[in-house]
Nucleic acid binder design. Structure first.
Lengths: 209, 209
DNA sequence: ACCTCGGGTGTACGAACGTACACCCGCTCT
DNA sequence: AGAGCGGGTGTACGTTCGTACACCCGAGGT
């Protein structure tokens, strides 16, 4: 094979490993406590690889959070895509809130990463754009089952519920979550059944619109 | 008056000035970018005063965020206390969302500080406790007009709406906010008029002014 | 008038950071 | 076989940080 890249030295997993390690470090020590050195150590790569693979800390963070947002969006699309009617969609939303806010004894990975991203987004435009795109995609998934206005409100509600749930002492409170979702989506059932919408997890995400 | 503290040297404003300066620096540079030196420079006090007045950075942050939470709670109590019925309470909530999320061209002070606090809360128990107390007090104010379950849902909704509003490109969207609040509080009007409720806390703070 | 005391400060130290850059070495081409 | 090349790495530099601590000096006490 005329491989232009000598695979013996350069493994393509390298970049991904660094990105994953970066997310681990961020979740553990915060963006503030994240350094090239810590990420390099966690990923098992030399310090010099950091500046080689990424143009500075900002680029690394951007890539890491993009990866994180993709994961969460994929979860949204999977759960909402599997729902076959509005009631199942409501259940799926409750599951998402539950999942996003679960902090199994100091775990809270998703919650921490979300806050870290929002904090960045509040200050740096690049991350604000990234976050907006994330929100937009989540909303599209919600619009498979709910009208646009409801989707927006529901998206905000999910956010708030997840945040508050994560901060509470006793973790379980599903009834309240379900009730809140029911209220927000009460008058918002689409004209036809949800099933009228095309494929769920497929590629065509804008189909419902 | 046998003043044990020579007031000529020690002005009590000193500590408060430092706390206020700390909040300014946090809003501007984030908790990560906040240092004793920056705060000292902003407050116009020597660097040595930092370690003299506060036992390390953590104590300073704790005090600063306590002050911030107090301010926001005071706003909640003022607006909700002024409402004379449920409809006015709903309007007050919409105002609060509007106020908390307004980012006048990079201002976003409240939004930024909130995210910074949540990020800290996600990691350090002391700040988590502080945040819980803040949420509890907000909920109490909401319970002046809504039943406890609705208050909790509404509190979460306010959070989510404020966050999403702050991130959006075009700032104005009041109709959506009002609609969401109406839905969450739809079935939740208390039996009698708002003022009739003595308040479960029994403390004197429920006295509408 | 002198001493004492303690609140308040300036400075210096060790640690950790991002990043630039000289260097190494396996691969490829002649 | 030898040279050239470029992807990948180790190290060193300048900066910034929190904090400890020796020091200053005005205010009572005698």
């Amino acid at each position: 094979m005329t491989a232009t890249t000598p695979f013996g030295r350069h493994d393509p997993d390298r970049r991904d490993r660094i990105v994953r390690a970066a997310l681990d470090v961020i979740a553990e020590s915060g963006v503030a406590g994240t350094s090239h050195r810590k990420v390099a150590a966690r990923a098992g790569v030399p310090l010099g690889s950091m500046t080689y693979h990424f143009d500075g800390m900002d680029a690394l963070l951007r890539e890491a959070f993009t990866s994180f947002a993709d994961t969460v969006v994929a979860l949204f699309e999977e759960r909402l895509g599997a729902a076959r009617n509005v009631d199942e969609a409501r259940e799926a939303v409750a599951d998402l809130v539950h999942h996003l806010s679960r902090g199994d004894a100091g775990n809270q990975r998703a919650v921490v990463l979300t806050h870290e991203l929002y904090t960045l987004a509040a200050r740096k435009p690049a991350f604000r754009e990234l976050t907006r795109e994330w929100m937009r995609r989540s909303r599209v998934a919600l619009e498979w089952h709910f009208d646009p206005a409801t989707a927006r409100q529901l998206d905000a509600l999910i956010e708030g519920l997840a945040i508050h749930r994560a901060l509470e002492t006793e973790p379980h409170d599903r009834a309240l979550t379900v009730e809140a979702i029911a209220r927000i989506t009460a008058r918002a059932e689409r004209p036809g059944p949800t099933g009228a919408d095309p494929g769920p997890t497929g590629s065509g995400e804008a189909a419902a619109r």
